[in-house]
Write a protein that binds this DNA or RNA. Structure first.
Lengths: 138, 138
DNA sequence: TTCGTTGCAAACCCTTTGCACGCAC
DNA sequence: GTGCGTGCAAAGGGTTTGCAACGAA
């Protein structure tokens, strides 16, 4: 099972043109083992939970690489840190401004009927919809 | 004209429960003189263009105060800096991921037919829609 | 050998904080 | 005098960079 997972992850990396080094596999495994949102710091901690295996610089480098290769997505909601999202399917987010919790919204639920025309000389890159919330009793 | 503007700004601040000190008036003037998006740094530079008049700490303090009082809005799109938006009417944004340029989209153009139900024990805080773009020729 | 990858530490940048001074009521 | 507002400098925290060491082809 673990072996299969690892193999799958290697293949995933290779399929995106990323040579699967052991550090990259560890980082990818951490990202994809739970389909939640992670900060660079969480990945770093998660990968080095038992013993130090990957350095901070490598985590940042690798996340940037995965991002560039379209393996993960960046979610910019918290001014103090970037979150990475292993779910690259079209979807959007609830963001709790107090707790920092982020949860998914299926794209079909909030689809916009028509996108406005883009500014001149610009091409579409992505659409982010963020619904900011706060705890009810606060 | 200038006098009138200043008076209007003072009243605006007062109407939000903010005592209009000279620094706050300068910062508010910088924010509202052009209805574009500003970073804390731009405000700092703009206010001190001719001679140093407001310190960095005061700019940050004042922007936070204005934000809390609902005079301006925060726009979180660029991982490296927070932008402040003097337009508090409902609207959304185009964001150029290369140049960092931000431009407005009128709310009516992209309104979402139905908001998804909020997670349990959460209340609505705000809705941000960001259409990320890049220059066409890049 | 060669080039891509990693690690460590320092550098960076935006933002926040601590604390003393100054002004208004 | 009391309290809020301001300024300066330093600290803080996430992210990036420079460079040497390493490892696979």
């Amino acid at each position: 099972m673990k072996k299969t997972d690892t193999k799958t992850i290697s293949d995933l990396l290779r399929s995106r043109g990323i040579s699967p080094t052991s550090q990259r596999i560890k980082i990818a495994t951490a990202l994809f083992s739970e389909m939640t949102h992670h900060s660079a710091d969480q990945i770093l901690a998660s990968v080095n939970r038992n013993k130090a295996e990957v350095s901070k610089a490598t985590v940042y480098n690798t996340l940037s690489l995965f991002l560039k290769k379209g393996l993960i997505r960046e979610v910019i909601v918290d001014p103090s840190k970037i979150l990475y999202d292993p779910n690259t399917a079209e979807h959007h987010h609830f963001y709790d401004v107090i707790t920092g919790e982020l949860s998914d919204i299926d794209a079909s639920v909030v689809s916009i009927p028509k996108l406005p025309p883009l500014p001149h000389n610009r091409v579409f890159e992505g659409l982010d919809i963020i619904i900011r919330t706060r705890p009810a009793t606060a």
